[in-house]
Design a protein around this nucleic acid. Structure first.
Lengths: 294, 294
DNA sequence: CCTGAACAGTCAGTTTTTCTGAATCTGGAA
DNA sequence: TTCCAGATTCAGAAAAACTGACTGTTCAGG
């Protein structure tokens, strides 16, 4: 059995509202026989007359009245549903699920979220703290819409990964140490080090920086929470290599920050599924993209 | 713009529930291309993909999820509406508006209502106290479904009026009066009388009864509420002519009831619109019809 | 790497539904 | 009565919905 046709119900409602088949036909841009047919089909399906045809005025029967009322609700609900969906499609409302590592979330996202809240207050942003690998695989799954991942990454089928930001990696050194203006691998390799967890891309990056100069220092401490690393530096446990997000000022006078020689960049990419991108997701991508030069 | 098709929505729901176009097609008794088409049409209308097609499993996109949820509600509501209407059509639920005069309502309807409440508890009976003329015109209007009217009535276009009951009109006399076993116009015309209001059919009926015997008595009191007339008889104000509904015992020992000679019948008809009769109305008609012999 | 199975999608043709103009019918009004 | 507005019937046209056959893609298993 087919579902009942909302078009027929709309016709029924129009006829009862206007009290005439002819008027309803005109209002619905239909020929009069079509209106007759619609009503007849409904009456057939229901098994009872819905309209009492009287000279000069057509009115609903008792059952017709009940159906008309239900029909009004159904039609209104259907319209409401489509409207709501349309708003989602236009990205005025909606959801974007974003994955990024702690560092990015702490230092780069707050501005992005502020802009989004201002321009698209009805977009619900869900943030997951993930590694780059997790981020990519959840993008493929469809359980994530936008990812911020370390670069370089091998291409992933079905995903678009674009370079987003390039932040210089800086040396963070306890303020009471004596250190050169530009930090070289040679100098740093001789100091006690606090480095990122080996699973992170940043640790691989710094390892390569040392290796290029022929050094392979063992860190005194390894962990993967950049803010914690900073605290340890402040406490004098050792020096660290961390990306410098220009936007966040140094929070602590017990730390000095020095550029590296050779310069080392931490590169981030922005990833999303290839093909159709939802408007709400696109808005998030746009806002993040604008931030790439900040 | 046509309304959105509930059939398409049902297909969408089926596909997301089963996670496969092919399964959904089978469950809906459709060919696979039809399912593809339904989804494609929906996506066209919405302007965004609703399902993410992946090998082995098809799942809704973010927007798809929202639409599926709305669609479930719409489909359930539509089904509910049709079910409810069906119950009304079958007369299991519904309404019947009934018009009758006070006498009928007081003495004959209570039994009818009891039977209806037992057999069709969900039928809502609305009773209006009306004259026969009002009853008939409201039947024609469609603001009344069943009428109990005095007979005879001229035929009314669009209405069916069938003889229903025939109750003997009796003389009600104060118990302390001396009176013959059978009351004649001659005897009664000489007594103080309490008669029905001139607008009622009963008063015309009794006037004719007197007139046939050559009498035209003036009543001492006229009113149109039979119970009040009875009270006045009990109080000794005079004699009255009232229909005797066999089912109600004489409530008062201060009254005696005597048959008339010649016998006078008060005839009642049952009226409803010609053509289609709603099931709930039909049930009421049936119950009343069964009472005609009581 | 190839092959086959599973399944979504495309296409052309057919069936079904939907719509319409013309004609017909109907119930009051003049 | 005749006329008129408006509902309805009907037959044909237009649109849609559906399907079978085919294509393309992906993935599992050799």
């Amino acid at each position: 059995m087919r579902e009942i046709s909302l078009d027929r119900l709309r016709t029924l409602v129009a006829v009862t509202d206007r009290g005439s088949f002819a008027d309803a036909a005109h209002a619905l841009h239909l020929a009069p026989p079509t209106v007759s047919l619609h009503i007849a089909e409904l009456e057939d399906r229901i098994g009872a007359p819905l309209l009492s045809r009287k000279r000069g005025h057509v009115g609903p029967t008792t059952i017709g009245e009940v159906l008309v009322e239900r029909a009004r609700r159904l039609l209104a609900d259907a319209e409401q549903a489509l409207d709501d969906i349309q708003r989602q499609v236009e990205g005025l409302e909606g959801r974007a699920r974003l994955g990024a590592s702690t560092g990015v979330i702490a230092h780069l996202l707050p501005q992005a979220l502020e802009v989004l809240r201002a321009h698209h207050p009805a977009i619900d942003i869900q943030i997951a703290v993930l590694t780059s690998q997790e981020t990519l695989s959840r993008l493929v799954d469809g359980t994530l819409d936008v990812g911020l991942v370390a670069l370089p990454q091998p291409p992933v089928a079905g995903l678009v990964i674009k370079p987003w930001r390039r932040d210089p990696v800086m040396a963070f050194v306890p303020a009471h140490w004596r250190c050169p203006a530009r930090i070289t691998p040679e100098w740093l390799a001789a100091q006690p080090l606090i480095l990122n967890d080996a699973t992170t891309r940043l640790s691989r990056l710094t390892a390569e920086w040392f290796a290029t100069a022929g050094h392979h220092p063992a860190p005194r401490i390894q962990l993967n929470y950049n803010d914690a690393i900073r605290s340890l530096v402040a406490a004098g446990y050792g020096a660290a290599l961390l990306p410098h997000e220009a936007t966040t000022p140094l929070p602590d006078s017990r730390i000095v920050m020095r550029p590296l020689r050779p310069v080392l960049w931490r590169r981030l990419g922005i990833a999303h599924r290839a093909g159709y991108v939802e408007r709400s997701t696109q808005h998030v991508l746009d806002v993040l993209w604008d931030l790439r030069l900040a």
